[in-house]
Design a protein around this nucleic acid. Structure first.
Lengths: 107, 107
DNA sequence: CCAGAAGTTCGATGATCGTCGTATAATGGG
DNA sequence: CCCATTATACGACGATCATCGAACTTCTGG
């Protein structure tokens, strides 16, 4: 408890409490994997709508929530958009090499 | 297609055709993760019954099949037992660092 | 040869998941 | 102040999943 310094609405698990199975499950979906790759390549926050996902808006929101609740991404409001970015450092600290391996395995 | 040099009954995907999302999904279950860790620590084939899984026999069979069809383990008959082992080299070749990261993330 | 051990197969069941459409906020520009 | 943009919430639907028990196969040891 106590790291709720930002938005009270958005659930972001603390870095130390990331669950491996939750992370693996979040990454085991093609659409979410695409999001994570786009985020990793841009290295800058991206708005939800900027992804070439062939799914509806609500499905997109769903995938972003799964990624956020697994602790893989961070989201914050920016006007009418919501910007997402990878929690790279925290992920690397908790699961060293995991994200790199997944991203390298792209193809 | 011709890599069927072993048992014709057991489906083992060729090393080059392992699917990342299938591998991640197979690893995203606590029971299967436990199997993979036991396999990695023993470094020798283990029979299905030697795992401290608190699930029924049929569920065990199911998990082993998921792991095998994802290309994570290899299974072969040995008398009345069936021995399982990690496909470490193939996994490392296809997804470098992935298995190591997952195993290191144990805790 | 036969009893037991080790796995598999086959439904079935309840849970979760990915997807959608529609309705509903929150925000910034004219 | 209203409207367009951006995203979320809420069911709902079909698919997949993890789990089980019971019946079946296959092999081994006595």
């Amino acid at each position: 408890m106590g790291t709720a310094t930002e938005s009270p609405e958005l659930l972001h698990p603390p870095a130390g409490e990331l669950d491996l199975t939750a992370v693996l499950h979040a990454l085991s979906d093609p659409q979410r994997l695409r999001i994570v790759r786009a985020l990793a390549e841009s290295e800058e926050p991206i708005s939800c709508g900027s992804f070439g996902l062939d799914v509806s808006k609500s499905t997109r929101t769903h995938h972003f929530r799964v990624l956020r609740e697994a602790g893989i991404i961070e989201q914050r409001r920016e006007g009418t958009c919501k910007l997402s970015s990878l929690r790279r450092a925290e992920l690397d600290a908790r699961f060293p090499g995991l994200l790199d391996a997944v991203l390298a395995a792209d193809r």
